[in-house]
Structure formats: structure tokens, C-alpha cells
């Protein structure tokens, strides 16, 4: 059957479910779609798969307010009742915010991502919690200035790829709630893990960031 509709489902990922990795989350969503009885389209061929695309993989442990999946359908659906049906079938921590119709022939949003905004809560360094080294906001702001003053910052990601991340940082600043606001350019679908950037910025061990909350706030599109 030919797909006759394409929809974009936006959802957030919070709480313990943020420890479910990308591939496992895909399967979890596929099963939820099946339980919700949405008329999803399948690919042709020997091993039919659900026709869809997902927002770029989120690092394990990150929360997100801006995940999305784009889904082809065999039948037209009523948007508002489908949101309810799907929500009922999702594990705790996954919340659908929006569902909208897309042009059937448009490209996947993934190729249109310009930048990604992250919010990183650094309150544990404020001295209110005993977990880690104390730093004043001024300390952190000075570190940010020094960091941004550099022309090149070469960092190596988990897969061993070394990249100059400085040009990827579009903005980096502290807000009034101890959140580090980081806007990272996504070049050709490549997303550098902000955990490595924050670790270098603060000059701390990976362990000290274990309790720091990373949230992917939103995608900026071309």
C-alpha cells in the first residue's frame, strides 16, 4: 500500500526513560505505535520495517524537550484522537507535545537541522549540594570567556573522532538559574556530545558530571 499521509510527532523524554538508548527507544516507540493501532506504513521487501525517521540520537542519560519522529501512514488519521491514543501507550517519561501533518514528499527534518540548543544545569557547583567542587558563577563565566576566546579547541568524541569544536559553538552563557545555555551548530548531521565540551570547559573529571542534568531543548532548522 502507498503511504497517503506523513505526520511529525514531537515528544519529550524525561526521568528514568532517558537511560534508554536510541535503538531501544525506537523499538519502544514502534511497539507503542502498534498498540495504539496507528495505520503506519511499512517498507516493501523481505523484512518490512515501519517507514519513519527519528531525530538524531540523544546521548544516554540526556533529557530532551524536543524529540521528534516523522511517520508515513497508510490511512488518514484524526490528529487529536491519535495523540491521545499514542500517549496512552507510552511508558512514563515519554510525552507527546504535538502532532502535525507534513507534506508527503518533503525531506526528513534531520537534513534541515542548523543548530541544537542544550540546557545544562550546573547548580551542583553552586555549593548548595555537597557533591562536587564549589565554583562561583563568576568563576564559570570567566571560564566561558576564556573558552570562547580561543580559536581552536580540539576535542575527541567517544568514537575517537577529533574535531575543532570552537566553530561549532554558536553561543554559550549562564542564565540566572545556574543553567549553562549552549547552542551547537550541527554540521552535516554531525552532533558533538556537549558532555565532553562541558567537561573541558569546567576542567572536571567525567565522574563529577554524573549528576549534572543535560537537556536537549530544541532544534533550530534552516
Amino acid at each position: 500500500m502507498n503511504s497517503i499521509q506523513k505526520v511529525r510527532i514531537e515528544y519529550s523524554k524525561k526521568g528514568p526513560v532517558r537511560y534508554i538508548g536510541h535503538l531501544d527507544l525506537m523499538h519502544t516507540l514502534f511497539r507503542a505505535l502498534k498498540r495504539a493501532n496507528l495505520p503506519v506504513s511499512y517498507t516493501q521487501g523481505f523484512n518490512p520495517r515501519i517507514k519513519c525517521s527519528f531525530s538524531p540520537a540523544l546521548p544516554l542519560g540526556f533529557a530532551s524537550e524536543s524529540e521528534y519522529m516523522e511517520l508515513y501512514l497508510d490511512k488518514k488519521i484524526d490528529i487529536s484522537s491519535s495523540v491521545d491514543n499514542l500517549q496512552k501507550e507510552l511508558p512514563e517519561g515519554l510525552t507527546v507535545h504535538n502532532m502535525e501533518k507534513l507534506s508527503l514528499f518533503g525531506k526528513s527534518s534531520n537534513v534541515k537541522i542548523k543548530a541544537v540548543a542544550y540546557r545544562i544545569n550546573l547548580e551542583q557547583f553552586s555549593g548548595k549540594s555537597a557533591v562536587s567542587t564549589r565554583a562561583s558563577k563568576e568563576d564559570i563565566e570567566r571560564k566561558i570567556r576564556n573558552f570562547l576566546d580561543k580559536e581552536e579547541i580540539f576535542l575527541t568524541n567517544k568514537k575517537g573522532r577529533t574535531v575543532n569544536v570552537r566553530p561549532l559553538i554558536l553561543s554559550m552563557e549562564m542564565d540566572s538559574d545556574w543553567n549553562l545555555r549552549l547552542l551547537l551548530e550541527a554540521r552535516g548531521g554531525f552532533n558533538f556530545n556537549p558532555r565532553i565540551i562541558v567537561k573541558t570547559l569546567l576542567g572536571v573529571e567525567k565522574k563529577e558530571l554524573a549528576f549534572v542534568e543535560f537537556t536537549r531543548e530544541k532544534f533550530l532548522f534552516w
Binding site: V17, I20, G21, D24, G93, A210
Partner: peptide, 21 residues
């Protein structure tokens, strides 16, 4: 308590207890 464990283990998904059903 989970927050004390999950960031430090290789497969945190094992300990969540949030399976469907």
C-alpha cells in the same frame, strides 16, 4: 537511590523497572 547508580553503570536500562505492563 537510582540516581546514585544509573550514571555509573554500563547498562542502566537494566535497573529502571519501567517495562511496559
Amino acid at each position: 537511590m537510582l540516581d546514585n547508580i544509573l550514571p555509573f553503570v554500563s547498562k542502566p536500562g537494566r535497573y529502571l523497572g519501567n517495562e511496559w505492563n
